[in-house]
Amino acid sequence: MNAVADTAFLAAGFRARESSRPDALFHDPLAARLAGETGRAMVEKVAHLGEAAGWSTVLRTVLIDRFIEEAVAQGTQTLINLGAGLDTRPYRMAVPPSLAWVEVDQAPVIAHKSEVLANETPRCRLERVPLDLLDTASRRQLLSRVSKGPSPGMVLAEGLLPYLTENDVVGLLDDLRDHEAFQGLIVDYFAPEVMRARNAMPGRMRVTAAAMKFAPDDWQGFFAAHGWKVKEMRDLAAEGDRRGRPYVIPEAMRAMLQQGKDIPQRQPPGMFAAYALMERA
């Protein structure tokens, strides 16, 4: 698999580690099986980063769970998870059996997931689709089909957009906007300076090797230009503080700060990382 697909195993490893804690913020009983030895080894490889390794994965899981719970309570009938990775929400969340849940990811990820979870029963109507989201024709065909299902629909793009180019994101946003059934969109937000600093870090200080590309200076303006506006933003740092999980700068990164390197402090003015619930503009 490529570096982006490999992050699915790392994320599953982080969710498994969190689930084993006595003070776990969520429980994902299937994460360890999905992560396997690959995910465990990847988590071990970044252990030198301490609590910072996996911090955002844990907090984003909590925030997205809440977004989905609220959306379902408000009547969402279909959820399509783009770049679903090894997420297990259809198995662990209290969602209605009638909810249509569509997972989309690269074929090797889907194959691994289907094999490992073959004997598990999801809590809703689950479909998995192996598809390269950068294959425009196939993506449009899928979105058109899903949009004809029960509505309103919600789109989840967890840990996806940061790895795409701005042109790739434009294409995806425009395709989603073309279907009235998709009323909501959950996406990552990272401040541009955080993205630049992250990409400039030496490899051993990064949690993942894949380069992050999507960092428009006017993030909200970018989305608005393509038919989406912010309905709600939830800050990872604020959630971490509230839950007793503040972000802790790794010692190696702290040394760079002391040398005057361009690495962001714990929380620059404003949000440095968040999850956003978007609605149609």
Results as ranks from 00 to 15, higher is better:
N2R: 11
A3I: 01
V4T: 08
A12Y: 03
A12S: 06
A12I: 04
F14W: 11
E18N: 05
L25T: 08
D28G: 05
A31K: 01
A32I: 05
R33N: 11
E37G: 11
E37H: 09
M42C: 02
V43I: 10
A47S: 15
H48L: 02
A53S: 12
G54W: 08
G54L: 06
T61F: 09
E69M: 03
E69G: 12
N81H: 15
G83Y: 09
A84R: 01
A84T: 13
A84S: 15
W101H: 04
V102S: 08
V104R: 10
Q106P: 02
K113Q: 06
S114A: 15
L126N: 06
V129Q: 12
L134W: 02
S138M: 10
R139C: 07
L142Y: 09
V155G: 07
E158C: 05
L161M: 14
L164E: 02
L164R: 07
T165P: 03
T165V: 00
L172W: 12
L172T: 10
L172K: 04
L176V: 11
L176N: 10
R177A: 15
L185H: 07
I186A: 13
E193Q: 14
A197K: 07
N199A: 12
M205W: 03
A211I: 09
A215Q: 07
P216R: 03
W219I: 07
W219M: 10
Q220A: 14
F223D: 00
A225N: 11
W228I: 03
E232C: 05
R234M: 08
D235V: 07
D235N: 14
R245W: 10
V248P: 00
E251M: 09
A255L: 11
K261Q: 13
I263D: 00
I263A: 10
P268T: 07
P269R: 10
G270C: 10
M271V: 12
E279I: 15
R280D: 08
